[in-house]
Simulated assay, not measured.
Amino acid sequence: MSHHLLRCATGAMLFSALLSGASAGECPADKLAPNPLNGAATAPMGVTDTELASIDLARENVKLNQRRLRMRHMVIQPGGVVPLHSHADRPALIMVTAGEIHEHSSKCAVPILHRAGDIAREALGTQHWWKNSGSQPVHLTIADIVNDKKPDTMMEQM
């Protein structure tokens, strides 16, 4: 397929999604509600997390002491779990690059399905856990600002 046809097809899919009100990888508007996350997974299972690179933000113009901007690659095997954790002190952007996974969020009454191409925005107030209920591994590319002096905001395995 030529680049022009690919751009047209991609644009048509995006336009169709906007017209239908679809918001891939987000909590449906009518399901936005506090969720106590009863029964949340508390231990990782079937997860491989690899830090690819990082930048010490104390040395950059933003001068954020004890903070790093990092990029990670995570693989969650079928049945695998990223346990309950908070983003109180660790904003993140998470892109699903392969597979499908459900996020159980403190801000949504139902699990949120994320598919390849979706980007989850994790910010202040977010607590959540993820489960791969499918039959294929899920691949995530994650960029976050981590506070290395506050491990309570992330599982040591994450």
Rank of each mutant, 00 (worst) to 15 (best):
130 W>R: 08
46 G>N: 05
126 T>D: 15
106 S>A: 13
22 A>V: 09
86 S>C: 12
82 V>Q: 02
144 D>N: 15
136 Q>G: 08
90 R>Q: 07
44 P>E: 11
78 P>K: 11
25 G>D: 02
71 M>K: 12
88 A>Q: 13
31 K>G: 11
48 T>E: 02
82 V>Y: 00
77 Q>R: 12
39 G>S: 03
74 M>N: 08
142 I>L: 09
39 G>L: 04
86 S>W: 02
69 L>W: 04
54 S>I: 02
106 S>L: 09
132 N>M: 09
74 M>G: 06
140 L>F: 04
140 L>Q: 01
64 L>W: 07
34 P>I: 05
122 E>K: 05
15 F>I: 11
35 N>M: 12
33 A>N: 11
120 A>H: 03
156 E>V: 14
148 D>V: 12
34 P>L: 12
130 W>K: 10
110 V>Q: 00
96 V>K: 00
94 I>N: 02
111 P>N: 06
140 L>R: 01
58 A>P: 06
30 D>P: 09
58 A>F: 01
65 N>C: 10
145 I>H: 04
55 I>M: 08
116 A>L: 07
51 E>S: 10
139 H>I: 08
150 K>P: 07
51 E>H: 06
88 A>F: 14
143 A>S: 14
144 D>G: 04
38 N>Q: 13
22 A>N: 04
157 Q>K: 09
38 N>K: 12
149 K>A: 14
64 L>V: 12
102 H>K: 15
52 L>Q: 14
155 M>Y: 11
66 Q>H: 15
117 G>N: 01
23 S>Y: 04
142 I>M: 02
13 M>C: 14
11 G>F: 03
89 D>F: 06
130 W>E: 09
146 V>S: 08
149 K>R: 10
90 R>M: 09
88 A>W: 10
139 H>Y: 05
96 V>C: 00
51 E>C: 11
95 M>C: 13
137 P>R: 02
34 P>G: 13
115 R>G: 04
21 G>H: 07
11 G>T: 03
125 G>T: 04
80 G>F: 00
57 L>V: 07
21 G>Q: 00
129 W>T: 06
48 T>I: 10
24 A>H: 14
11 G>D: 09
137 P>L: 07
114 H>S: 08
34 P>E: 13
85 H>I: 11
133 S>P: 03
20 S>W: 05
82 V>N: 01
47 V>A: 02
64 L>F: 07
22 A>F: 07
111 P>H: 03
77 Q>M: 14
88 A>Y: 09
54 S>M: 07
33 A>I: 09
131 K>C: 01
33 A>W: 00
29 A>F: 08
67 R>S: 00
59 R>V: 07
22 A>S: 13
114 H>G: 05
155 M>E: 14
70 R>M: 02
157 Q>D: 15
129 W>E: 01
13 M>W: 08
99 G>R: 07
82 V>I: 15
48 T>M: 01
97 T>L: 00
76 I>K: 05
135 S>M: 10
104 H>K: 09
149 K>P: 03
44 P>N: 09
28 P>D: 06
141 T>Y: 04
46 G>E: 12
66 Q>E: 14
4 H>Q: 06
133 S>I: 11
146 V>F: 01
28 P>A: 00
61 N>Y: 13
38 N>G: 14
138 V>S: 02
36 P>Y: 10
2 S>G: 15
106 S>I: 00
